[in-house]
Design a protein around this nucleic acid. Structure first.
Lengths: 149, 149
DNA sequence: TATAAACCCTGGAGTTACTCCAGGGTCAAG
DNA sequence: CTTGACCCTGGAGTAACTCCAGGGTTTATA
């Protein structure tokens, strides 16, 4: 009749592995829950809902820090929700950027694939497309970021 | 008249920071280069081209391990290049998956954004959309992977 | 009641691919 | 001969987990 759940049950209910819950506790994203006599964590319905919120926000691609900000906001009912809107907007933009990058990449890879008609490594069109030509090298400034894809 | 370059020059020529070159050396992706008397690394044109290849392949989103495999293949001119094709194909598929995931996400976020017309946190449509409803919780098996986006 | 299976605990290491730093040495120009 | 730009090493830090060993606890079964 006790509605408090063990970490495994909370994991099942919220849709994430128990390890994640402990991790979120460690980084202070969720509060330390109460414990049983046997030192087991126990979670009430509110805590489980909070975990579900986190899982869903992460699934939507929000970073832990963004989730943290949203969680800190939710108890302040009267506060303006413009910040949530802004976070979502920023997130949407970054997704658009990723989609654009990946689409460009997709085209390059597809072109490389269609140009390859088998054969040996010596005349592989794909390796050729990746390799820098013997003369030209792209100039650049230091500290150019690598593609994070 | 010596065409060997310092790590900084090789970095500029290949388009990546010097730190990356040292890192690639550390993980064995590139061989240890020769050194000057003052213990500076020096790179010849072939090594610089190899670095350029790496940078380009990384830019195309191949993982280090995939790059490693391609690099190990290039000296074997007579070998069939089907493996390169396969790697590229797999990579293309994973990109397609990512694009699909991100596009789905995009739609969700956009829907959330258009449903939000300002107001307080209490009736924020976005937070509402993320929060799990009081009753329904998605069942799941343990060890469900999180979205990596 | 005994014991095995299933669950939970902690702390720490490993993952990817870098990025940045401190605390030094080396080299070229003025 | 000093200043500044470059280079060296080793190690820590990043994001967000994921997995493990070596324990303790609880529950179901024999």
């Amino acid at each position: 009749m006790n509605e408090r759940q063990t970490i495994g049950q909370a994991a099942t209910a919220s849709g994430m592995p128990a390890d994640n819950i402990r991790y979120y506790e460690k980084i202070g994203l969720v509060a330390k829950p109460s414990r049983t006599e046997g030192n087991y964590r126990t979670y009430g319905p509110n805590e489980v809902r909070r975990l579900g919120f986190i899982r869903r926000a992460r699934e939507l691609g929000f970073s832990i820090e963004q989730v943290r900000e949203m969680l800190e906001m939710t108890p302040h009912h009267e506060q303006d929700c413009g910040r949530v809107d802004q976070l979502t907007h920023e997130h949407l933009l970054s997704i658009d950027r990723k989609i654009a990058d990946l689409t460009a990449l997709r085209h390059e890879l597809e072109a490389m694939l269609t140009s390859c008609h088998g054969g040996t490594v010596r005349d592989c069109r794909i390796l050729e497309a990746i390799a820098p030509s013997k003369s030209a090298v792209t100039p650049h400034r230091h500290a150019v970021g690598q593609a994070k894809i």
